[in-house]
Amino acid sequence: EPREEEAEKYIKRANGDYDKAQELAKKDGNEEIAEAIKEYKKR
Rank of each mutant, 00 (worst) to 15 (best):
E1W: 14
E1K: 13
E1A: 13
E1Y: 14
P2M: 14
P2C: 05
E4G: 08
E5R: 11
E5Y: 11
E5W: 11
E6S: 10
E6L: 13
E6G: 07
A7Q: 04
A7K: 03
E8K: 13
E8C: 09
E8T: 07
K9R: 11
K9C: 09
K9W: 14
I11D: 02
I11M: 06
K12H: 10
K12S: 10
K12E: 12
R13D: 11
R13E: 13
A14W: 00
A14V: 04
A14K: 00
N15M: 06
N15G: 12
G16A: 02
G16V: 01
G16I: 00
D17S: 05
D17M: 02
D17A: 03
Y18E: 03
Y18V: 06
D19V: 06
D19R: 05
D19C: 04
K20L: 15
K20Y: 13
A21C: 00
A21R: 01
Q22A: 10
Q22D: 03
E23Y: 08
E23G: 05
E23M: 10
E23H: 06
L24Q: 09
A25P: 01
A25C: 03
A25N: 01
A25F: 00
K26I: 15
K26E: 12
K26F: 11
K26T: 12
K27I: 12
D28S: 04
D28W: 03
D28F: 04
D28C: 02
D28Y: 04
G29N: 07
G29V: 02
N30D: 05
E31G: 08
E31A: 12
E31H: 13
E32G: 09
E32W: 12
E32F: 08
A34R: 04
A34V: 15
A34G: 04
E35G: 05
E35D: 10
E35C: 03
E35V: 08
E35S: 08
E35T: 09
A36R: 07
I37F: 01
I37C: 00
I37G: 00
I37L: 05
E39Q: 09
K41L: 08
K41A: 15
K41N: 05
K41E: 08
K42Y: 12
K42F: 11
K42E: 15
K42S: 12
R43W: 12
